[in-house]
């Protein structure tokens, strides 16, 4: 049913077919560098996976995918609304601890905020 295409050949093919769009994407990728207390969502991944911050820090999550994601603490201490493309969510960590979180839509996406 499906033909498996060599990924590099596919990439070349896509590059050929989507030259203008790929160019636009590259320009898009050249946005402002990631802020120190920021977690970005790209390709269904929280980055960085582990972020260490001092107590009192406000951490901001930004979704760069064109699919919505959420940020939900495993202990339910924080929970974002659905974040559409380029939407963000912020939460202030007042005390020390290790806070694991995940995406409620794609729970294979996980991350940890370590508050010192």
């Amino acid at each position: 049913m499906r033909k498996f295409v060599n990924p590099s050949r596919r990439a070349v093919l896509i590059a050929l077919l989507l030259g203008p769009i790929a160019g636009a994407c590259l320009a898009y990728g050249a946005r402002a560098a990631q802020a120190p207390n920021e977690v970005v969502i790209d390709n269904f991944t929280f980055g960085p996976h582990d972020l260490t911050v001092p107590a009192g820090t406000t951490v901001k999550w930004v979704n760069h995918d064109d699919i919505p994601h959420t940020v939900i603490a495993s202990d339910k201490s924080f929970r974002s609304k659905a974040l559409d493309t380029d939407d963000s969510y912020s939460f202030t960590f007042t005390g020390p601890g290790t806070f694991s979180y995940f995406c409620g839509l794609h729970p294979q996406m996980t991350g940890t905020i370590i508050v010192k």
Partner: peptide, 15 residues
């Protein structure tokens, strides 16, 4: 995309 054929399962851009 087909499983594992792309960095993520996000929408696949085709011509």
């Amino acid at each position: 995309p087909a499983p594992g054929s792309a960095p993520s399962p996000g929408p696949m851009l085709v011509p």
